[in-house]
Each structure stands twice: as structure tokens, then as C-alpha cells.
Write a protein that binds this DNA or RNA. Structure first.
Lengths: 347, 347
DNA sequence: GTTAGCACTCGTTCGAGGTGAGTGCTAACA
DNA sequence: TGTTAGCACTCACCTCGAACGAGTGCTAAC
């Protein structure tokens, strides 16, 4: 017994219905609501076959059928192959995704919020990351007599700041001149390269050994800190789905959303795929046994890649989500200077 | 009929028990668990009086009594007047609150997380804000041919970045020299003062009018952006309390936590009070009708104030929370250079 | 003023019975 | 040979009523 055209149509109907209602769907529903020209008895036979093939599950004997992860996989693959993403999402995304957003983090935050609002699921957005960022500029700013703020600007547009404390007194002027030297020496280097330079610099600028040691530590930490700041939106959306009416489940999901590092790992997408859809167990995350994660990438002007993700129940509205994410990815790419076709105007 | 010593002790016992169990407490429980040397009947009479006085509520006639907001208010006032905060929290806070935390935002985030872990409630931390920050340094960094990243460093240690796009081509060298000029001219000014300087600068640097216009807009936005980045921890903690076993309630609470701006408004604390406790209706937030909010302030070296807050059910463990927040406030003040007694060592 | 006793209230639990959605199987039909 | 009607069967879910018990208010005695 193999999958034929009719079985596929029935399966599709079941999935559609289940996505809508979250209630196990019975043979009668299919034969009535989706006019297949078949009686419920026939559908029943087919459903029995589909169950045997592993596409349907039955919560208990007198309940309807529920699509399995395998079914969703088939469904999504079909969707992706067809590739005809609904286009009406473009206006929606554009309508929401504009306004004053210059600051990198604001963009990320806002994107997550829009994505969650439009999809009604939980959205996660990772900022662009790529090869080791290169230092553009280092500024030391005096904060108090014995503390300086070091601001590191990289070509990734990512700025990190940290406080260095020293025992000697620091005055603004000398900090300024040190900043100049540092920028000159370290400009164009990656963070880890910069760390290697520290001893040399120390030799040259003896007076500042304490400061430079501090800087070294900061650079090291920043280099290691591969934890990009994830933006999350619509965590509470998840609670509106019956899948999460169980408090314990809801709690564990929410705590997962709170551990941003882990979340970033889960979402961050390697490889070149424009879309990834992980269904249920495929996520590899126990807490997300009945979630699906859809991720997509966007690309910035300097070739760095960021990820956007949507987390929802396995019975997610894949078609809608994929389409929205597609548009959102394009928008982000444009905003970050990739999309050459229509550079976003400021106001 | 007035409140006497015995009534107060009974009320206290009821509150203690309810805080622990979240179950309406009956007369028998009080007479047995808390040896008052009184029979349940006597307690019953007193409880009836306390209800009449507005300190107790009765969910239904055959249930025990529940403390009213008025009762918590009395309880907390008593607690604050006594002022003897438990001191064992100091070690707890210190044990958690150390390690590498140099970056301003990391500190805030970490503080929120520690606070929520220690209290088991939801914690919110607002970064220090104060008088208009003054510009220390402005850096333009080329991002692409027609876009520059502007990084503004202020004495508040707050760094904001934004992208400016122009039609002319921008090369690194000229950006660097522009940065130098800008820093020279705007150093020491507040953001709004800087905006006023823009026309003058434009006159002097004709070539860069487009860039400067962009800068003006950015400065304006940053000046307006009074929305500090709030850090939240332990939102999921709230779900473990029976008060929030109702999904709808949980949802509305969580969405409130997601709208950070509103949350910041709610938490941000004006005035000089070291502690504020708002109980139930006192919060003024409908979604928090049965929450209490405890806030405290901390102070940085340059006199700016930040706020930490804990949100929990009205039957919060006030004593514990107040004590933890007290320590945490001190720690933050020290970390930000206020507490002169023991400047935090780096490693 | 305190306490024992008692009738009363009312939310909670538990089991029985009814209901209905849905299934699998069989036999008849085209 | 595939499709359909019919039917017995299963089982989650709802409802209802009884039993239960925690807790109260009141009264009378100490």
C-alpha cells in the first residue's frame, strides 16, 4: 500500500482542518466539509491506511485522527516545493514594519514584535553575525577618576561597552590620546588579533599597563561572547493555543524563552538554506516536543547573516508563516543594506 | 470596636499562613498551628471582628478568611517601621551576583535574573537615568558606501548607535575627520544642546549637510527616547502560583510584561523613598489587581537613579523580598560606583 | 471573656448513567 | 474491485446527586 493522490488530498484536508481547530478530525468532517465526493466510510478506510503509513495518530480509539510529525513534514515539503508563497503578506509586513528604526537593537526588537503580531506565534530574531568582526574604533571615556568606559565599534555595527577600573587616576586628555593610539594600532584587526597585540602595545605604552590589561580582558570576553542579543516577541501568544493550556507545559516553555543563550542556539541556523522547518521532535528540544520552529535567514550588506524564527504549535499555519517570514527576511535584508533594488528611504 | 494587640497577632498569623499556603485560613488552623492559647471559637469571634474592620475577606460563607489589601498594607507598614530586614539575604545576593559583568546592560539583565531567582517572583530592573546625559564622543563608522553608523558615547555610559544614510559616497578617512570635528564641537553638551548646534556646524562644514541633517534627527530621537531598556527576569515564575492558574489572567500578565514601555512606567519610581510597596489595587494597573509591586532605588556614582522592582502575588513574602531588594540595591549602587565603602573588585 | 457544642452552609470529590462522536467490520451494491 | 450503508462497539465528556468535610455563627455553660 502506498501513498496515492487521493490519500494525499485527504491527508491535506485533515491537516488543514486540524490546524484550524486543534481537535482530532473524524471521517465525517472530511467527507462533509471538504467535498471529496466520497462517503465517510471510504474516508475511514483511507484514514486507516494513512494511520498505518504513519501519517496519522489516534489519541484514543473513538476519537478522530491527528496528523503526525511525519504528516506535517510531508505537508511542509510540498509547500516549500511548490514555492508559491502567498504574496498578500507583503503589504501586511510593510504596513507594520516601518517608522523610525535606526538603532540596530530597535530593528531587531521591532522585527520580533511585528513577526509575532502578524503570525500570532512567538517570534525570535537574531542580529546579523558573521566572520569575526573587525575593529573600527576604540574609545576610552572617563567615567570616574579610576574608571574608564571602553567602547568598541566594529564593522559589524556592533558596539560593545565595558568598564575598566584602574588604580591610577585617569584624565580625559590622556584617555583621548590613548584612544587615538589604540584605534590606529588596532583598526582593521579582529578582536582576537587585537588581544595578541596587547603585549606589544604594553611595551610601547608602559604607563598604561593596567589599562591595557583591562582592555585585553574586555576584548577577550567580547570575542568569546558569541551570545548575540536575541529579540523575542509574543511569548504570551503561545498561551492562547490549547496545546499550552497545561500550566506545567506553559511554564517550561516560558522558562526556555527566558534563557536567551539556549534559545539563540536553538534558533541560530547554520548553512545556506533560506528556510528551515523543524517539526516536533525534529527540534531536538524536549520542551518543544509539540512545537515547530520555522527559521529563515537574512543577509546584510557586508555579507553577515542573521536569523529570524517563529515558534508555534506543530499545527502551525505553515503557509502563512512561511510567507510572512519570507517578506520579513527581505525587509530586514533591505534595511541592513542588502536588497539593492530599493534602498529604504529615511522617512 | 478597635484593633487591639491580640487582633493584630491573629491577623499576622493569618497573613503568614496565607502567604505560605494560598488557601483561605480557618479559625482552627490558627488556634492549632500558631499556639495562641485560644480556642478556635475565640479566634472565630476575633476573625469576625477583623472582617468587619475590613482586614479579612471571606470568599464564601463556609470557607476560611483571606487577608484583604488593607491587611497587607498594615502588615507591610509594620514591617517597614520595624525596619529590621533579615540580613541573611546578603550572602545569597553576593553569592549569585558576581562574576564578569562589565557591560552596563549585562549588569541590568543579570540583576533582574538574580532578583527573580532569589525571590521566585518576577523581577524588573531599570537602568540608571537622571539629568540629560552629556556627549563625550561621537564616532562615525562607515558601514557601506552610502551609510554610516553613528555611535554616541555619553557620560552616562549609555551608548546609542544609529545608521545614517546619505546619497554621496563616504570614505573612512573623511568620516574619521568629521568624527573628530563633531566630538570637539559637541563634547560636553547635552543631546538637545547638540541639536541646536547642528545649523552652525552645517554652515561650517557645507559638504556634509546631508550627513549632519541625519545626525540631527538621530540626536533628536535619542533625546526623546526616554524609554530606558528594562530588564526582566522570571516572568515564568508567576505561573507557579495558584493565583495565576487561570490562563486568561496569566496571558494578560505576560502581555503586560512584553510591553516594556508600559512596564517601565509602572515600575519607575519617583521621589526619594527607598522602598515602595504597592498592593493590589494600589498598583493602579487593572491587570495587576491581585499583584503587589515592590520597588527600590539604587544610585550611581554620578547621582543618577535606577529602580529595581519585584512583582508577585499580593500574598508575597514581603519580608524576604524587602530584605533581598535591600541588599541588591546596595550591590548595584556599589557596582555603579556609589557605595564608597567597598568598590567592587574586578575578578 | 472564653469555650464547648451544634446546626448549617457550601465547595469539593466521586461514581453512575447518559450522550455522542467516531471507529472497525461486514455485507450489499455498482 | 472499489464504494457505501448499516451496525455494534468504544470511550471521552457531561451531568447529576450523594457523601464529605472544612469552616462558620450562634447559643449556652463555665
Amino acid at each position: 500500500m502506498a501513498m496515492d493522490e487521493r490519500k494525499f488530498r485527504i491527508l491535506q484536508a485533515i491537516i488543514d482542518d486540524y490546524i484550524l481547530t486543534a481537535v482530532p478530525v473524524g471521517s465525517r468532517t472530511i467527507s462533509k466539509k471538504y467535498d471529496m465526493g466520497l462517503s465517510s466510510a471510504t474516508i475511514r478506510n483511507e484514514m486507516s491506511d494513512l494511520e498505518e503509513l504513519g501519517y496519522l495518530d489516534q489519541p484514543h480509539v473513538s476519537a478522530g485522527r491527528v496528523p503526525s510529525a511525519k504528516a506535517y513534514r510531508l505537508y511542509v515539503d510540498q509547500l516549500l516545493r511548490a514555492g508559491k508563497l502567498r504574496s498578500d503578506s507583503e503589504q501586511m509586513v510593510k504596513a507594520h514594519f516601518l517608522g523610525r528604526m535606526r538603532q540596530m537593537e530597535d530593528v531587531i526588537d521591532h522585527a520580533a514584535q511585528v513577526l509575532s503580531t502578524l503570525t500570532n506565534y512567538t517570534a525570535v530574531v537574531l542580529p546579523p553575525t558573521g566572520s569575526q568582526p573587525r575593529i573600527r574604533n576604540i574609545q576610552l571615556v572617563s567615567v570616574s577618576d579610576t574608571a574608564a568606559l571602553v567602547v568598541i565599534v566594529t564593522d559589524a555595527g556592533i558596539v560593545r561597552d565595558a568598564v575598566i577600573r584602574v588604580s591610577e587616576e585617569l584624565d580625559s586628555d590622556s584617555l583621548y590620546s590613548i584612544s587615538r593610539t589604540l584605534t590606529q594600532e588596532l583598526n582593521g584587526r579582529t578582536l582576537s588579533e587585537a588581544v595578541e597585540q596587547i603585549p606589544q602595545l604594553m611595551a610601547r605604552m608602559q604607563a598604561q599597563s593596567e589599562l591595557l590589561t583591562g582592555l585585553g580582558t574586555v576584548l577577550n570576553e567580547q570575542g568569546e561572547a558569541v551570545k548575540p542579543r536575541v529579540a523575542i516577541g509574543g511569548t504570551s501568544n503561545m498561551l492562547s493555543y490549547p496545546e499550552y493550556s497545561d500550566m506545567e507545559k506553559a511554564r517550561s516553555f516560558l522558562s526556555l524563552m527566558e534563557t536567551r543563550d539556549r534559545l539563540a542556539d536553538i534558533i541560530s541556523q547554520k548553512g545556506e538554506m533560506s528556510f528551515t522547518v523543524r517539526i516536533g521532535p525534529e527540534t531536538g528540544v524536549p520542551e518543544m516536543a509539540d512545537c515547530s520552529i520555522v527559521t529563515a535567514t537574512y543577509t546584510t550588506g557586508n555579507g553577515q547573516q542573521g536569523t529570524i524564527g517563529v515558534i508555534g504549535p506543530t499545527r502551525m499555519q505553515y503557509s502563512r508563516v512561511l510567507s510572512i517570514m519570507n517578506t520579513m527576511g527581505q525587509q530586514l535584508s533591505e534595511l541592513f543594506g542588502m536588497g539593492d533594488d530599493e534602498p529604504l528611504k529615511l522617512e
